[in-house]
Design a binder for these strands. Structure first.
Lengths: 191, 191
DNA sequence: GTCTATATTTGGATAGAC
DNA sequence: GTCTATCCAAATATAGAC
């Protein structure tokens, strides 16, 4: 067996993800990916023989894994409200409380390869399904559950943009705080 | 006086805007800007001596004008609900019913010049103020009006991302349809 | 004002030494 | 597995003819 990698696969992916999610596919230059990861460009090509498209695909795959963990509480936690609260907490960590952009946003701009766009669409659909499932489990109808899930994703993505544009994560934090009531039917007002 | 421009300033800006909003600042190559506008690269430098940064600045300035028109009904139309409905209609046109991205999103990614980001922040703030004004005029408190305006912008931006990622403008169209009730207090339920 | 031609830099990618 | 060196294409930008 050959020499051990100087940078762990998982760590490398984290660094590459950081660049792709902030700059988009076209904006992520090999130079930026190189300096963020600490590997020279040629070394990146050794780890990803298919080049930048391969790096982007690996990044999206790692983000898929990250999201599997983010939505895991939705099925493992029996109380729907507690489940959504835990998901919201993990979403906050993933987006650095609103300081990092979403790959669904930045990696679907013009210039991104089709397979990247397809992966992004699949990722969004999976997330929507997971959120709709917990809403249905909490008593929402099929149609209402899907509507709530879409509203939640719209709000997360939109609040991330506001956070970036206004350089203020407040709207994103508010979105996270209100995720439970967006997905789970509020109890009927007393009186 | 010299030769007349082969492409009108306003038309030129429209073409440049199309590229920047779809590809972002870094992704908008001179070649793409050239072929979209019908002018060769050197001609673009004649019209914009400061190059790509100047083009991007001019694009954002033209978008500012476009938004001045989009929000105009909020002050010119006396009925708040009708005002928001007309704004929603114009927003739909500007975003081609959800098929075009928002410059607030794409032109604020890493790589964009600081003055572009500053202009984007100013544009977002102006829009928020205009929407909050109409909400307040319809009876909302200062705090509630601002909250509603932010929710409306979050929803527009988020639904545009969903439209792009899922390749389905439905969520954006729904957002537009519900803008009036998001900004204007719903009448108390009868009974 | 627009064009062709060109300079210069950056980006993506490969070869081969260690 | 990582590095230096290099190649080629694309991107930004300029010069000068028309």
């Amino acid at each position: 067996m050959g020499r051990a990698p100087s940078v762990d696969d998982a760590v490398l992916l984290r660094h590459l993800t950081e660049i792709f999610r902030q700059s988009g596919y076209e904006g992520a230059s090999l130079t930026a990916l190189s300096s963020a990861s600490g590997l020279h460009r040629a070394s990146l090509y050794h780890r990803f023989p298919s080049g930048k498209p391969g790096m982007a695909a690996a990044v999206l795959e790692s983000v898929e894994h990250a999201f599997a963990d983010i939505v895991a509480p939705l099925t493992s936690e029996s109380d729907p409200t507690a489940a959504v609260e835990e998901m919201a907490r993990r979403v906050g960590v993933f987006y650095a409380q609103g300081r990092l952009a979403c790959v669904l946003d930045t990696m679907t701009l013009r210039g991104a390869p089709d397979d990247i766009r397809a992966r992004a669409a699949h990722l969004a659909t999976s997330w929507l399904t997971a959120m709709a499932d917990v809403a249905r489990r909490a008593g929402a109808s099929e149609e209402d559950a899907r509507r709530r899930a879409r509203a939640a994703l719209v709000r997360i993505e939109g609040s991330l943009i506001l956070a970036r544009v206004l350089d203020d994560p407040a709207e994103f934090q508010l979105a996270l705080a209100e995720l439970p009531q967006m997905l789970i039917r509020r109890p009927a007002p007393a009186g």
